[in-house]
Design a binder for these strands. Structure first.
Length: 553
RNA sequence: GGGCCCGUGGCUUAGCCUGGACAGAGCGCCGGGCUUCUAACCCGGAUGUCGGGGGUUCAAAUCCCCCCGGGCCCGCCA
């Protein structure tokens, strides 16, 4: 309804002004929507904005298609306030399962995220990628796109060669240790040894040549080491409510000849250069650095395989979205540029800035990081304390289940609420805060609503709101589909996080000031319907954020 | 050195793309509210040169330029 009214108003303003940009904005406290079009017209018409607004308001108010929308000019502003029918119809939609889902589209979207090198466990930097990516995928799905998530597995880079070399040298470690932790130990030890004795580097080079040539034993060793690590990573991802639809192995593109074919096509580009290496001269396109694709020993670098991957990926979807750290900005832009030169589809790239520790940036190689597993364990521990304190009535298993959900909610929300371009310093105090601007706060609002609905028993849905708290809440509920739309259009999952908070906030205020169960019919039924609508909206919203909508906590 | 990003109350942050009505929140601080639908809550209060300067505009946190501070990138790594 909100989106319909917005589009209706935009068209009406365009028609009444002879095609001016409607300049619709959020009306905030003043109205549901507002327009500043009178300012824009003032210059052209050489009249004062309030005068124009006044006249325009008069014309708009007479339009039959805007029946039910109150139009008024407040000084130079045009304010539009939607009538009660708007709220009633919005609530009718809001109580239905799947509320907020936009009409299905045919477009297929592939969201690639996380794709961390399998040389150790995910740390708090990686999971920013994971959480942004997974939330984005959920948003796209909710916005009607056919969506698939992919993890691009680097199983043949230098770092993996070091891992494989280490596994060979140290015997693979204790099988009781989680795969990603086990691999990290080999990787860290191998790096230490390589730093001490640089001559050993030639052994790494040889491994990389062997794997590129498809030498079976080396290939098998790389795969095995990567699989061990990936098993651990998948476990961590599952703990965060993340699963990928597909894992795409980098080496497959070498083995199936795709990388070779990419290089063949590259040769035909005017940007193609060959000396000891194969590279592209992208200077005419604004990149002064060489874009190297093949080393002097004939092995390909990551960039070549990445081109092959994206070309393959583009065959299976209409749109690609990659979630990458800000350190990949240059290489990402070069990739997009090259794909364009080849006549291929470039991906949209969502970059996020780094997460660092108070003592500096993280490093897997140096073993300097806070692992996602540690974070989850720590937050879950705190959640257990909280649940134990509040819910003595529940059994231990039930309390642990709640604590687990609360922990994931806290972590996911903390990460997704910050816009991606903001660099973050990881902060334990903030991670362990379950108050207002947190995932648990949202879950709490949902649980409160569920509790009311459960105690209420069956009731007949009915509509009509007059109390300011009711109206404010109903209006926020009505906005949900437009928030999904906006988050999808802008690839900005944090917009959804902000919405969830505003919704929960308004509900808690409503909860405090407006009695539901104790109110008299017909208010009781109307308010119960509103609570149902809010609960359903918040549930859909939380689901899209990858957070459990708990019925009790 | 060049490129990209960030700089909003003590701390964290929304708003910036698409300029417009008093810059929203959270933490912390001060004060209030649990015989009443779950107090992970609610209500009230103090705290802001929107990094600095210039420009564009009727109007700038928002657009442009310069400067300062921080992060990232500039590899035959990924």
């Amino acid at each position: 309804m909100y989106r319909e009214n917005r589009d209706l108003l935009a068209r009406a303003i365009r028609e009444e002004t002879g095609g001016a940009d409607p300049l619709l904005t959020d009306g905030e406290a003043h109205a549901d929507l507002a327009s500043t079009v009178a300012f824009a017209l003032a210059k052209k018409e050489r009249r004062r904005p309030p005068e124009i607004a006044q006249e325009l308001a008069g014309r708009l108010a007479k339009r039959p298609d805007l029946m039910g929308i109150r139009v008024e000019a407040t000084g130079p502003y045009l304010n539009f306030t939607f009538g009660s029918e708007y709220l009633d119809r919005s609530l009718q939609a809001a109580v239905k399962p799947g509320y907020g889902s936009l009409p299905r589209r045919e477009e297929r979207v592939v969201v690639e995220h996380t794709s961390a090198n399998p040389n150790g466990p995910l740390h708090v930097g990686h999971i920013r990628n994971t959480i942004i990516g997974d939330t984005l995928a959920r948003v796209m799905k909710k916005a009607g796109y056919r969506t698939e998530t992919q993890y691009y597995v680097n199983d043949m880079g230098r770092q993996i060669a070091i891992v494989s070399w280490g596994v060979d040298r140290y015997g693979g470690g204790d099988p009781a240790v989680k795969g990603d932790d086990r691999i990290a130990r080999q990787y860290i030890a191998a790096n230490r040894e390589l730093e001490a004795d640089p001559a050993l580097t030639s052994e790494i080079d040889r491994l990389m040549q062997q794997v590129e040539a498809g030498e079976p034993e080396t290939v098998a060793k790389f795969r095995s080491a990567v699989s061990i690590c990936l098993d651990g990573i998948k476990k961590t991802l599952a703990d965060l409510h993340v699963s990928h639809d597909r894992f795409v192995w980098e080496s497959d593109f070498v083995r199936n000849g795709d990388v070779g074919r990419v290089l063949d096509r590259i040769r035909l580009l005017p940007e193609y250069r060959r000396d000891e290496t194969v590279w592209l001269d992208l200077a005419p396109h604004g990149f002064d650095k060489r874009y190297i694709l093949q080393r002097s020993d004939g092995t390909t670098v990551y960039a070549a395989r990445d081109l092959a991957y994206h070309i393959w990926k583009a065959r299976h979807c209409d749109r690609m979205i990659d979630v990458l750290g800000a350190d990949h900005k240059l290489i990402g832009a070069q990739l997009q540029c090259t794909l364009r030169l080849m006549g291929e589809t470039p991906p949209s790239i969502v970059h996020f800035e780094f997460v660092s520790l108070p003592e500096g940036s993280m490093s897997t190689r140096a073993g300097k990081f806070v692992s996602a597993d540690d974070l989850i364990a720590e937050v879950e521990g705190k959640a257990r304390e909280e649940v134990a304190r509040r819910r003595e009535d529940l059994g231990e298993a039930e309390r642990h289940a709640i604590a687990r959900s609360v922990a994931v909610a806290a972590i996911r929300y903390d990460t997704v609420k910050v816009s991606p371009e903001k660099a973050m310093v990881f902060d334990w105090r903030q991670a362990l805060d379950f108050e207002r601007q947190s995932g648990p706060y949202l879950q709490y609002a949902h649980a409160r609503a569920c509790s009311i609905l459960e105690k209420a028993g069956p009731f007949t849905g009915s509509f009509g709101y007059s109390d300011p708290h009711e109206i404010a809440l109903a209006k926020m509920i009505a906005r949900f589909p437009s928030v999904i739309e906006q988050a999808a259009d802008q690839l900005a999952p944090h917009l959804l996080a902000a919405y969830a908070h505003r919704l929960a906030d308004l509900f808690n205020t409503f909860y405090q000031h407006v009695p539901v169960l104790k109110s008299e019919s017909p208010s009781r039924e109307r308010r119960l319907t509103l609570v149902r609508g809010m609960q359903n909206t918040l549930r859909e919203c939380l689901e899209t954020l990858g957070i459990d909508a708990l019925a009790s906590m």
